[in-house]
Every structure is written in structure tokens, then in C-alpha cells.
């Protein structure tokens, strides 16, 4: 007898990615560069977030041809993004054999009220969160992995830092609460009470939590690890830099050895120009992807 799509199988897949870097790629060639550099997985997309931001309009799931092209090019797991609440995009990606689906605010939400019931799928899901309430709502819906939302496609780490610090400080707060405070806290956070009970016991989230949204340099990746991330997603940072292959390798190493500053200094030398960054105050409210569907 074999049970597929159980919590252990879905969450365990994310456990195996810990300490690693997941890279956005738009074709087979980039996927191979990512795999060669030591990425633990790739995210197959039609456009990286910086280009989605620049193009404007409605951003949708990638063309299945791209997802299949990337799946055929590498042996590491392949993830793909579906629009928030888009049941058919998610089922379609599952049927293609994507190894993980990112129900992602980088794409234009299909449903502004409801997220997917991710517990119903065999394929595991990762979702973004800016705080603990959001994180636990997503886990309650069946997400097997979390990531910070950050502000994708900006090359600016400030929002990812804010979100990681927020989740970490709220975790500590819950761990220090007495049991009789938890129900009111669950109400305030808008989070399932049972998940708060679990956090009080273990002091940590029930699933892996990666950093994402604005990571542009090896030092950024190491910073997020130091703040408690289990690993990092790098979106536009790598293939929008001057030398993607060198850049990709440097980010992988900085993530593994995030406390070895001499090494990170060496890695950061002569990498060429990083992606052009965006300052948050220049973004109009409508351009802030992180505020989509909370």
C-alpha cells in the first residue's frame, strides 16, 4: 500500500530543500545554469518578476511548453506559479507533473477573497506571507511550505527582511504565551487555534519557511538565512545580473555558509553589476504585489 500526497510527503519535500536556493528560470538554458550552480529547484516562469512588473497588464500561469521544457532539461525539482485562487491553473500544473506549485502574488490574483484549498491536491504548495496570521492561514488551507512575500522584482531586500522579522518575533511571542491567551491571539491573528497550540509547543512553524521577494546579492541571501530563513528563492536577481552563472554560484555558496563572512566577501568580488533595484517609496500602492490577497 502506498499513500500519495500526505502531509508528510508534501512537507517532507520542502524539508529536503532546506539550506538551498530556488531560482526563477524562463527556459531550459537558464534551468541548466541554475542546476549547474547548485540550485535545489527551479521555478519555471514565462517572465521573471522584474519583467512582469515592467510589462504591466495581467500576469498568468506560464505557457505549459515552458514548464515542460524546463522539466525535461533538469533532474532537480521544478516548481511553477499559479494565480491565487485559480483552481484550473493549479490543477493543470499538477497534471503536467510540476513538483511544487507557488500560489503566488507575483501573478495577478484570480480570486481576491479565497485562496485554493491546497489540502485537496497531491502536489504540494508554497505560499507567501508577510506575518504569522497570513502564514498560518495558508498552512490551514494546506500549504506545505511558506516564503516571505517581500516585494518581488524590486531587487530591494527591505520588505523580505520586514516579513521575516515579523514572523520570527510573532513566533517568539506565541511560544511565550500561556495557553489561555492563545484563543484570543488566534482571533487577533486570524489564524487557526490548533496551529498556535503547535507553535507554543515547538516554538516554530509547522512547515519550512524560505525567504523571497527582493533578494539580489549573495549578501542578501546570507542575511535572510541569518534572520532565520530555511532557504531562499531568488527571482529576478540572478538572470537580471551581468554574469548569471557566476552570480548563481555565489548565491548558492553564500546561502550554505551564511556566517562565513570572509567567504561571502570573496564571493561578492567582481560579480559585475547586480540587477537594478527599486526603492519602495517609488512604488504606487497598486504596484505593491505583497498587498495582493492576504
Amino acid at each position: 500500500m502506498a499513500d500519495r500526497g500526505t502531509d508528510r510527503v508534501k512537507r517532507g519535500m520542502a524539508e529536503m530543500q532546506k539550506g538551498g536556493v530556488i531560482m526563477d528560470v524562463v527556459n531550459a538554458e537558464q534551468a541548466k545554469i541554475a542546476e549547474e550552480a547548485g540550485a535545489v529547484a527551479v521555478m519555471a516562469l514565462e517572465r521573471v518578476p522584474a519583467d512582469i512588473r515592467a510589462a504591466g497588464g495581467v500576469a498568468r500561469m506560464a505557457d505549459p511548453t515552458i514548464v515542460e521544457e524546463v522539466m525535461n532539461a533538469v533532474s532537480i525539482p521544478v516548481m511553477a506559479k499559479a494565480r491565487i485562487g485559480h483552481i484550473v491553473e493549479a490543477r493543470l500544473l499538477e497534471s503536467l507533473g510540476a513538483d511544487y506549485i507557488d500560489e503566488s502574488e507575483v501573478l495577478t490574483p484570480a480570486d481576491e477573497v479565497y485562496h485554493l484549498d491546497k489540502s485537496e491536491y497531491t502536489v504540494p504548495f508554497v505560499c507567501g506571507a508577510r506575518d504569522l496570521g497570513e502564514a498560518l492561514r495558508r498552512v490551514g488551507e494546506g500549504a506545505s511550505m511558506l516564503r516571505t512575500k517581500g516585494e518581488p522584482g524590486t531587487g530591494n531586500i527591505v520588505e523580505a527582511v520586514r516579513h521575516m522579522r515579523m514572523v520570527q518575533s510573532e513566533l517568539k511571542k506565541i511560544a511565550g504565551m500561556s495557553k489561555d491567551e492563545l484563543m484570543t491571539e488566534a482571533k487577533n491573528l486570524g489564524a487557526p487555534y490548533e496551529l498556535l497550540l503547535g507553535i507554543k509547543e515547538t516554538g516554530k512553524l509547522p512547515v519550512v519557511n524560505f525567504a523571497a521577494g527582493g533578494i539580489a546579492t549573495p549578501a542578501d541571501a546570507a542575511l535572510m538565512m541569518q534572520l532565520g530563513a530555511d532557504g531562499v528563492f531568488v527571482g529576478s536577481g540572478i538572470f537580471k545580473s551581468e554574469h548569471p552563472d557566476k552570480y548563481a554560484k555565489a548565491v548558492v555558496e553564500a546561502t550554505t555558509h551564511y556566517q562565513d563572512y570572509e567567504l561571502i566577501a570573496r564571493l561578492s568580488r567582481g560579480l559585475g553589476t547586480a540587477m537594478q533595484g527599486l526603492e519602495m517609496s517609488t512604488l504606487a500602492p497598486s504596484e505593491r504585489m505583497q498587498d495582493r490577497s492576504m
Binding site: 500500500m1 502506498a2 500519495r4 508528510r8 519535500m13 533532474s75 513538483d99 502536489v123
Partner: peptide
Amino acid sequence: QRNAFGRQRESFETT
């Protein structure tokens, strides 16, 4: 043999 049972959707648990 790597990934011998298939992709993630074919991952499973058993006794």
C-alpha cells in the same frame, strides 16, 4: 536509479 518512482506527485508513504 534516481527519481525512480517518478516526480513529486508520485511520492508516497508506506509501511
